[in-house]
Amino acid sequence: MTQAQLTDEEWEFVGSYLPIGEYGPYPERLRQQFEGVIWRFKTGGQWREMPTEFGAWSTVHNRFRQWRDAGVFEALLEGLIAEAAKRGEVDLSLVSIDSTTARAHHDAAGMHLGKDVIDALEKAT
């Protein structure tokens, strides 16, 4: 058992978000492939380093891309938040509604300004 394996209860929740097409994926392999995706991001390892217990790394990578493109991870996150809210386990004080409250330095985005421009901007704020 690797650190990426889901409990049956977790899989029941996650599995309901994964699409099954007419020609695949094979439902019995979805859990294995999803756990491979978890392994990849939990360990930071390369796709090619993935243990064979998750299936072929290229298949798991392709499945990840399909799920990403289909919006599965966003839907799953929203579902998890909704479930936590039903149980009263959501702390909305940790949510940032307005990003202007976290001001970044102008160099944070790779922008380089001359000293005269920076001085003018600082005087304007």
Rank of each mutant, 00 (worst) to 15 (best):
V60E: 02
H112P: 07
A4F: 06
G114W: 04
I38N: 04
Y17L: 00
L92C: 09
I81G: 04
S16E: 14
D116I: 12
E35Q: 10
F54I: 08
T59Q: 00
W67C: 02
Q32R: 12
R40T: 08
V60R: 01
G44V: 09
Y23R: 13
A56D: 11
R63G: 01
D107P: 03
I118G: 07
G110E: 08
V90K: 08
A102F: 12
L6S: 08
T59P: 00
A82T: 03
R68N: 11
R65H: 15
Y23M: 08
G79W: 02
R40P: 04
D107S: 15
S16Y: 04
A109C: 03
A109S: 06
L18C: 02
I38V: 14
E78D: 10
Q3W: 04
D69P: 01
G36R: 05
E122L: 08
S16G: 15
F64S: 06
A4M: 01
F34N: 04
F41G: 06
A84C: 08
E22D: 13
F54V: 09
F54D: 09
Y23Q: 12
K115E: 12
S16Q: 14
P19H: 10
D69M: 01
I38S: 00
M1N: 07
Q32C: 09
F64P: 05
G21H: 13
D98F: 06
G45D: 14
D116T: 14
H112S: 13
